[in-house]
């Protein structure tokens, strides 16, 4: 199941309130501002801070 692009456009990172980028390969929603990746589980975007994966610092 994929996330409807129409409503993906409405989603923001709950921490930084900036737009999210879909990483289709890893099935994650990336917050570049907060350096967090939110999982999409069984088609459900899980936009919980506790469920997010911290992204490695970019050099």
């Amino acid at each position: 199941m994929s996330v409807d692009p129409d409503y993906l456009a409405l989603l923001v990172c709950p921490i930084s309130r900036t737009p999210l980028r879909l990483d289709a390969e890893r099935n994650e929603l990336i917050s570049d501002a907060a350096r967090l990746a939110y999982p999409i589980r069984e088609g459900v975007p899980v936009l919980l801070v506790e469920a997010a994966r911290p992204l490695a610092e970019q050099a």
Binding site: P14, R17, P45, L48
Partner: peptide
């Protein structure tokens, strides 16, 4: 999660709302 999945929605906390300003 279970309710979000049943309704085909998003899992989030109400006081950490993940929707852009002026969405609805």
């Amino acid at each position: 999660f279970a309710f979000a999945k049943m309704a085909g929605g998003v899992q989030c906390d109400e006081d950490r709302l993940p929707f852009a300003d002026g969405s609805f």
